[in-house]
Amino acid sequence: MLRHRVIPALLLRKGGLVKTRRFKDPVYVGDPTNAIRIFNDKEVDELMVLDIEATRSGAGPDFGAIELFAGECFMPLAYGGGIQTLDQAARIFDLGVEKICLQTAALSDVSLVTRIAERYGSQSVIVSIDIKRDWRKRPWLYGSYSKKLLTLDWLGHANKMTQAGAGEILLNVVDRDGMMSGYDVELVRSLAGSVQVPIIALGGAGNLDHMREAVVAGASAVAAGSMFVFHGPHRAVLITYPRYQDMERMLDISK
């Protein structure tokens, strides 16, 4: 088993699988159920499904789709998008999802993190923190719902989330999203030095070298989207996943 999880992060929009660049311009890349079946065959460590429209549209989680995804998955599944209440989280867990990912709701109601963690355990709660750098390259919390920079101290917010009960922090960097140019390892390193829970790095992976850099910087797991759904310089759609032997070799930082 790999020491560091390698997680495909699938983005949903209106029921379809999409991929963005810097949180903009979603491009349709296929049917999410088909992608899940392919990842089953490739025996991925864990899968993350994030509905990027559920909160903004006000529709909330699509429980029918979530039930379908959970029924198809042979691996642990994390779901995020539109979750605003404990009852919604409970229903999602009842459908077979192992982890809940919160972002907007955690910003507006930190008690939701605590209530979910108290009922289902901290290991079941991921809080997603989106970071965007300003023109001076300073990192700021970014609200994906409002599409604005937030004035909260981002490391302070991360610590508040872990104190509230979050078992993992998903660090997603807006400027690296979909660019396949590497993770923002400086931010990974800063977060790893600040919190005591596992960190999932997301945003920028283009190859296993990038993933190794994030692991060396302190990430417990690495997630990616474009790297697993695009192939070649023209970004042709092709669902893929690295060979286990290659990941084991590249991500063993004890060597």
Rank of each mutant, 00 (worst) to 15 (best):
M1R: 00
L2W: 07
R3W: 04
V6P: 01
V6W: 06
L10H: 05
L11H: 12
R13W: 02
R13I: 01
R13H: 13
G16R: 15
T20A: 11
R22G: 15
R22W: 00
R22D: 11
D25I: 07
P26A: 07
A35L: 01
A35Q: 04
I38F: 06
F39S: 00
N40P: 08
D41T: 01
K42Y: 12
K42S: 05
E43D: 14
D45P: 03
E46W: 12
E46I: 04
E53G: 05
E53S: 14
T55P: 11
R56G: 00
A59W: 05
P61V: 03
F63I: 04
A65C: 03
I66N: 04
L68V: 13
A70H: 07
A70I: 08
A70D: 08
F74S: 11
L77D: 09
G81I: 07
G82D: 11
I83K: 03
Q84L: 11
L86A: 09
R91F: 06
I92A: 00
G96Y: 02
K99W: 04
C101Y: 03
Q103K: 03
T104F: 00
A105W: 13
A105Q: 02
S108Q: 13
V110Q: 07
S111T: 14
V113G: 10
R115D: 15
Y120V: 05
G121N: 08
Q123C: 09
S124R: 07
V127N: 03
S128R: 06
D130G: 09
D130W: 07
K132D: 07
D134Y: 08
W135V: 14
P139W: 08
L141Q: 07
Y145L: 14
K147H: 13
L149G: 11
L150V: 11
D153E: 13
W154N: 09
W154Y: 14
W154L: 11
A158S: 12
A158Q: 02
N159V: 10
K160W: 00
A164C: 08
G165V: 09
A166K: 13
A166L: 08
G167N: 04
G167W: 02
E168Q: 13
E168R: 13
L170D: 02
V173Q: 07
V174Y: 05
D175T: 04
R176E: 15
M179T: 15
M180G: 03
S181A: 15
G182P: 06
G182T: 06
V185S: 12
E186L: 02
L187M: 14
L187R: 04
R189L: 09
R189W: 10
R189M: 06
L191P: 02
V195I: 15
V195H: 12
I200Q: 00
I200Y: 02
L202W: 06
G203P: 01
G204M: 08
A205G: 05
G206V: 04
H210V: 10
H210A: 01
M211W: 03
R212K: 10
R212P: 04
E213A: 15
E213C: 05
E213Y: 00
A214N: 01
A214W: 03
V215L: 02
V216N: 01
G218W: 04
A219F: 05
V222N: 06
G225M: 10
S226E: 11
M227F: 15
F228V: 10
F230R: 11
F230E: 13
G232T: 06
P233K: 14
R243Q: 14
Q245H: 12
D246H: 06
D252Q: 10
I253Y: 07
